[in-house]
Amino acid sequence: MEWLNEFLTDNKIPLGKWVEAFVGWITDNFDWLFDAISEGLGFLIEALVDLLAATPPLALILLLCVFGYWLHRSWRLVALIGLGLLLILNLGFWEEMTETLALVLFATAISIAIGVPIGIYAARRPWFYAGLRPVLDMMQTIPTFVYLIPTLILFGLGMVPGLISTVIFAIPAPIRLTYLGIIGVPKPLVEAGESFGATRWQLLYKVELPHAMPTIMAGITQCIMLSLSMVVIAALVGADGLGKPVVRALNSVNIAQGFEAGLAIVIVAIILDRVLKQVEPTGDAKER
């Protein structure tokens, strides 16, 4: 079998060159489109960052505490938000935290806006999900550094390539869990809605989505965590945020700075997870 081994090694399929040629063709012919996308997204992200930066830190912490209490009616959550953000402010990473928060919020919003409708459509069309599943598997298994190469070439340095890479990495979660939530709706429940004359849109908004909401919210939470996991990776292509001090600490072997920046990322992740999780119904609501 040596001749077969030599044949396979001597006749390499130029997949890398084909992809390089394809990316070069896209860059040459659609450079204007990627520049417009980069400028538009960059403007929106910078506007949100400027708004967060213009807000006094203590006022923003107070607003987030009030928002958390309004959602969950939990003083423990308020204490977690207040103490966690005060610690980030004390460590000197407040500006980087606001940049990370803006990146995560935009990435999550884009992932939800694209992923939830795709998940609903996939639940309605099994053949579509059968073709989509290998693509989602590939998106979740490809090393995160690989995403940075095409986005860096197409969009240049800055927040935008980090945002695009984050969306590609995080969007499979809302797609999969929206699909699982919709197909998990009991058939008798759907049949009951149909018997009352509900249209397909009414079934979706009044029956299927409310029943699937816990699963969809789990997908959104996973999307947030995946977005935060890309923060450090996105810093390698010029994205601002808490990833930059981590990268600087790695390059200079600065253990103290690396630990503090990593702790800030963990605090942001925990706060977002607790604040954005689905609100549990009260005892009276359960009885009703």
Rank of each mutant, 00 (worst) to 15 (best):
L4I: 08
T9N: 11
T9Q: 13
N11S: 00
N11E: 09
W18S: 01
E20K: 13
F22H: 09
V23N: 02
W25V: 12
I26Y: 08
D28R: 14
D28V: 14
L33C: 02
F34T: 15
F34P: 01
D35W: 15
I37G: 04
E39D: 11
G40K: 08
G42H: 13
A47K: 15
L51R: 11
A54Q: 11
L63W: 09
V66L: 13
V66M: 06
Y69N: 10
W70H: 01
R76M: 15
L77K: 07
A79R: 13
L83C: 11
G84A: 11
L86I: 14
L89D: 04
N90V: 01
F93N: 01
E96W: 05
T98P: 09
T98A: 12
T100R: 05
V104E: 04
L105T: 13
F106A: 11
A107T: 12
T108D: 01
I112Y: 13
I112E: 02
A113C: 05
G115M: 07
G119L: 04
Y121S: 09
W127C: 05
A130R: 15
A130H: 13
G131C: 12
M138K: 01
Q140P: 01
P143I: 04
F145Q: 03
Y147I: 04
Y147H: 03
L148N: 06
P150F: 10
L154K: 09
L157E: 05
M159G: 00
L163T: 06
I164R: 03
S165I: 08
I168T: 08
I168M: 14
A170W: 10
P172E: 02
I175T: 06
I175V: 15
L180N: 10
I182P: 06
I183Y: 00
V185S: 05
K187Y: 09
P188S: 05
L189H: 08
V190P: 10
G193T: 06
S195R: 09
G197L: 07
W201V: 08
Q202N: 00
Q202R: 12
L203F: 05
H211Q: 05
P214N: 05
P214V: 06
M217F: 05
A218W: 09
G219M: 05
I220T: 03
I220Q: 03
Q222N: 14
C223D: 01
I224K: 09
I224C: 07
L226E: 11
L228E: 03
I233E: 11
I233G: 05
L236A: 05
L236P: 10
A239Q: 14
D240L: 15
L242K: 04
G243M: 02
P245D: 03
L250Q: 09
S252Y: 12
A256G: 02
E260W: 04
G262P: 00
I267N: 03
Q278L: 15
E287N: 08
E287G: 07
R288H: 03
